[in-house]
Design a protein around this nucleic acid. Structure first.
Lengths: 230, 230
DNA sequence: AAATAAAATATTGTATTCAATCATTGTATC
DNA sequence: GATACAATGATTGAATACAATATTTTATTT
């Protein structure tokens, strides 16, 4: 997956997680110096991570003005969700052409995880909900599709962080269940439409009555993500 | 588009073009030193460009082993083309929902360009053929979709460079014409299916009887030159 | 006091440097 | 003659250093 230098990976990974988990909010500045101090690496190393995050659309890198967490406009937000609909539709259609047995098994195992941490660990619960979609994409066997879905799901987190009121935009567990059922039945149309309404629901809750609040600072937040690997 | 430092952009851009135009073939090593000399920049700058190209899938970056032009397997090649089908289908469907007037106008202008350089400047002709697809994506107005299409078209060039026999896999001009006609008629189904067969044609010519010469490394070549005293 | 200009400070851009790792060649041993 | 090991050279990994650019603060003027 990430193939660059060993030292910049933790920086990349931590920043990425912090952004996805909405600890680093859209628009927050990401100074190379302070990030480097946090991870005890040089700016050179930090910069590599930032360049990559910029390429993935999670970070906005401007010449001579440094990096900040990407801060999508409302138009971009809609664009991102529309793209997600396209990609996840493809996922559904591919999965329904495959042998459903192993797919359903993997999905149900994941669903159990989701259930387990529901109302117990909110952060983890949200992360698992996102990973459900990534798992779906991975099960198609297409590395590229999985990559794109991964990327777009991350960017959706960013959109939610930017516009949604707190907790207003979680994935519904029952909806995940229904999607699995449709796949199990091999019903591509139903699976696709269930996914569509599922995503549409998330999008609506986020973008119908958007919430514009402002930003905070960096280092103290990042500190919690330093050795958060697994 | 590309927002990183001013000096690394030319490096990024030149490498990208060289790869797409198949001057740099899949698997070729890209040493930071020599590239830096070519552009009169430091390795630091080259590295930034390489990290980005790696993120885009055009370059393969391995820890402690440097960068080389991405060298997709035949499976990855199919994966790339399948993804491209998905993305360009989306493009067709979106375009056919829009006002066709300005779209068709832009497309016909591009087509004229293509016609102009056909049989005159092969390199340019091939590039224009690729840019037709990128233009289609841009006309949807979706930055993200356009980005993805741009990326996937580039990666298709890589696949062609890797597997196709020379000149076997160009875009047919008449097919572009037909696609424009379908859009003009507002016929989404026809536009989509025309695009599908168009892309399938390119793919088939490339991957049906692949020119899967192993990278002629030195020893393979030399093996044919050993003198047998007799 | 408000606005502008100048200086100081902070931050990024890029080259250079040194350390670490990999690839290749040469050598010794079996 | 083949394999294992050691030495050399080449290439990358990453920190430091310096230059260029932005930002902030202070000083000056109106």
């Amino acid at each position: 997956m990430y193939k660059s230098s060993t030292r910049s990976f933790p920086v990349y990974d931590s920043l990425r997680k912090a952004i996805i988990e909405q600890a680093l909010k859209p628009g927050v500045k990401l100074p190379e110096d302070s990030i480097g101090e946090t991870f005890s690496v040089s700016r050179t190393t930090v910069r590599n991570a930032l360049v990559r995050l910029d390429a993935e659309g999670l970070v906005d890198l401007q010449p001579n003005r440094g990096a900040s967490v990407a801060d999508p406009t409302i138009e971009e937000a809609h664009d991102i969700f529309e793209m997600r609909q396209c990609l996840e539709r493809e996922v559904m259609q591919r999965l329904c052409k495959m042998d459903s047995k192993p797919i359903v098994k993997a999905l149900k195992a994941h669903l159990a995880e989701e259930q387990k941490y529901l109302d117990v660990d909110t952060t983890r619960s949200i992360r698992l909900a996102g990973e459900f979609h990534i798992l779906l994409a991975e099960l198609t066997g297409s590395k590229i599709l999985a990559n794109y879905v991964n990327e777009i799901v991350s960017r959706c987190s960013l959109v939610l962080a930017r516009f949604a009121q707190a907790h207003s935009a979680q994935c519904g567990l029952e909806e995940h269940t229904e999607i699995i059922a449709a796949i199990e039945a091999g019903d591509a149309d139903r699976a696709t439409s269930r996914m569509h309404t599922h995503l549409h629901g998330v999008q609506d809750r986020a973008l119908l009555n958007p919430d514009d609040d402002d930003k905070d600072n960096v280092s103290d937040i990042l500190a919690r993500y330093v050795t958060h690997n697994s």
